[in-house]
Computed example of a mutant assay.
Amino acid sequence: MITVRLNNAEFFAYHGFYPEEQLIGGRYLIDITVTFEPQGELNDELPQTVDYQAIYTICKEEMATPRKLIETVAHAIMKRIKNGYPYITELDVILKKLNPPLGGTVAYSAVNVNYQAAKKSIGI
């Protein structure tokens, strides 16, 4: 198994339930962990792994689409990564909204969505 991580990818985006959040925007951090079984013998080529540049691009594109809930954003990122790499066995996406407008000091609010492939049973 191999694990690829993208940590603290930072974006400025316009997500939020309240209209002023969608006008003002805010800063977000994304952590992604992808575990997979290599596709054949590793030979230093991208098609045999999970390309973290492609994962970053997916995050960038999804963050550019304003949504009310960060849960929806995180789920869209997870779905696109999973569809792009069907051999993934585990996928974890954490989306943090920095300094959320909650009426007090809060470093961030966050959601975590994950996927785990069904384990293949071995017949005996």
Rank of each mutant, 00 (worst) to 15 (best):
Y18T: 15
Y18C: 09
P19I: 13
P19A: 12
P19W: 09
P19C: 09
L23W: 13
L23R: 14
I24S: 04
I24V: 14
I24G: 01
I24M: 03
I24Y: 01
G25S: 02
G25D: 02
G26C: 00
Y28G: 01
D31K: 01
D31A: 06
I32A: 05
I32K: 00
I32T: 09
I32S: 00
T33L: 15
T33S: 15
T33H: 15
T33G: 14
V34I: 04
T35A: 12
T35F: 06
T35E: 14
F36E: 13
E37L: 10
E37R: 12
Q39I: 13
Q39S: 13
L42Y: 08
N43F: 09
N43D: 13
N43E: 11
N43M: 05
D44E: 13
E45A: 14
L46W: 04
P47R: 14
P47S: 12
P47Y: 12
P47I: 04
P47V: 08
P47M: 07
Q48I: 10
T49S: 06
T49G: 02
T49E: 02
V50W: 00
D51F: 03
Y52S: 06
Q53C: 10
Q53W: 15
A54P: 01
A54W: 15
Y56D: 10
T57E: 11
C59H: 05
C59E: 06
C59K: 01
E61W: 04
A64S: 10
A64H: 04
A64L: 01
A64N: 00
A64D: 07
T65I: 06
T65H: 08
R67M: 07
R67P: 14
R67F: 04
K68M: 02
K68L: 07
L69V: 07
I70L: 06
E71Y: 03
V73P: 01
V73Q: 03
A74W: 08
A74I: 14
H75K: 11
M78L: 10
K79F: 15
R80M: 00
R80T: 05
K82C: 01
K82R: 08
K82L: 03
G84R: 09
Y85I: 00
Y87E: 10
I88N: 01
I88M: 01
I88H: 00
T89Q: 09
L91V: 00
L91C: 01
L91F: 05
L91A: 02
V93E: 00
I94L: 12
I94Q: 13
I94K: 14
I94M: 12
L95N: 05
K96Q: 10
K96R: 13
K97Y: 07
K97L: 05
L98D: 03
P100T: 11
P100A: 08
P101G: 02
P101S: 05
L102W: 04
L102Y: 07
G104I: 07
G104Y: 14
G104Q: 10
T105N: 05
T105C: 02
Y108H: 09
S109N: 06
S109H: 03
A110S: 11
V111W: 08
